[in-house]
Amino acid sequence: MALNTPQITPTKKITVRAIGEELPRGDYQRCPQCDMLFSLPEINSHQSAYCPRCQAKIRDGRDWSLTRLAAMAFTMLLLMPFAWGEPLLHIWLLGIRIDANVMQGIWQMTKQGDAITGSMVFFCVIGAPLILVTSIAYLWFGNRLGMNLRPVLLMLERLKEWVMLDIYLVGIGVASIKVQDYAHIQAGVGLFSFVALVILTTVTLSHLNVEELWERFYPQRPATRRDEKLRVCLGCHFTGYPDQRGRCPRCHIPLRLRRRHSLQKCWAALLASIVLLLPANLLPISIIYLNGGRQEDTILSGIMSLASSNIAVAGIVFIASILVPFTKVIVMFTLLLSIHFKCQQGLRTRILLLRMVTWIGRWSMLDLFVISLTMSLINRDQILAFTMGPAAFYFGAAVILTILAVEWLDSRLLWDAHESGNARFDD
Score class of each variant (00 low, 15 high):
328 K>A: 00
24 P>C: 14
188 G>Q: 10
353 L>R: 15
130 L>P: 07
70 A>G: 14
224 T>P: 10
386 F>D: 00
94 L>E: 00
40 L>F: 08
395 F>M: 11
135 S>C: 06
421 G>C: 10
187 A>P: 10
182 Y>V: 11
126 I>M: 09
207 H>C: 15
76 M>G: 04
119 S>D: 04
103 M>A: 03
190 G>V: 04
47 Q>R: 08
331 V>D: 01
162 W>I: 01
130 L>M: 15
242 P>W: 05
129 P>T: 07
71 A>Y: 03
375 M>H: 10
24 P>Y: 09
162 W>T: 01
352 L>T: 12
319 I>E: 10
379 N>T: 07
405 A>Y: 10
204 T>D: 10
183 A>I: 05
119 S>P: 07
315 G>C: 07
198 V>Q: 15
198 V>K: 14
185 I>T: 05
98 I>V: 11
388 M>I: 06
344 Q>C: 11
124 C>V: 06
85 G>A: 08
77 L>E: 08
7 Q>E: 10
189 V>W: 10
129 P>F: 04
331 V>A: 11
379 N>R: 13
69 L>R: 06
303 I>V: 10
188 G>R: 13
409 L>H: 06
314 A>I: 13
145 L>H: 04
333 F>D: 05
324 V>W: 15
186 Q>H: 08
425 F>V: 12
38 F>N: 07
346 G>M: 13
394 Y>L: 02
394 Y>F: 10
346 G>T: 14
22 E>D: 10
147 M>Q: 03
281 N>R: 00
318 F>S: 10
87 P>W: 06
146 G>H: 04
307 A>H: 15
272 A>L: 01
145 L>N: 04
183 A>V: 03
411 S>Y: 06
271 L>T: 06
97 R>L: 03
403 I>C: 07
3 L>Y: 11
413 L>A: 07
295 Q>M: 03
290 L>S: 03
265 K>N: 06
369 F>Q: 03
46 H>D: 14
308 S>K: 14
257 L>S: 04
59 R>V: 09
256 R>D: 06
125 V>W: 01
24 P>R: 14
253 I>H: 02
41 P>S: 11
406 V>R: 02
53 R>S: 11
48 S>G: 12
330 I>C: 12
187 A>Y: 10
371 I>A: 01
344 Q>F: 14
312 A>Q: 14
414 L>T: 15
122 F>Y: 15
42 E>N: 09
53 R>K: 13
359 W>C: 12
278 L>E: 11
156 L>I: 13
93 L>K: 01
418 H>V: 09
136 I>T: 12
407 E>R: 07
409 L>C: 05
113 G>S: 10
361 G>C: 09
107 W>P: 08
203 V>I: 15
124 C>Q: 02
49 A>E: 03
242 P>K: 07
4 N>C: 09
342 K>T: 09
6 P>N: 08
128 A>D: 05
80 M>G: 12
299 I>V: 07
28 Y>M: 13
136 I>K: 05
282 L>A: 08
380 R>N: 02
333 F>T: 10
170 V>Q: 02
93 L>D: 00
101 N>H: 05
324 V>I: 12
388 M>C: 04
154 L>K: 01
155 M>A: 03
259 R>D: 12
126 I>W: 04
39 S>P: 06
337 L>K: 12
105 G>V: 03
424 R>L: 09
290 L>I: 12
212 E>Q: 14
417 A>V: 12
129 P>Q: 04
23 L>C: 09
342 K>P: 15
203 V>G: 14
223 A>M: 10
248 C>K: 00
396 G>A: 05
23 L>F: 07
289 Y>R: 01
361 G>S: 06
190 G>D: 02
162 W>E: 01
112 Q>L: 05
186 Q>R: 14
197 L>T: 06
298 T>I: 07
62 R>K: 06
243 D>G: 05
56 A>S: 11
55 Q>E: 12
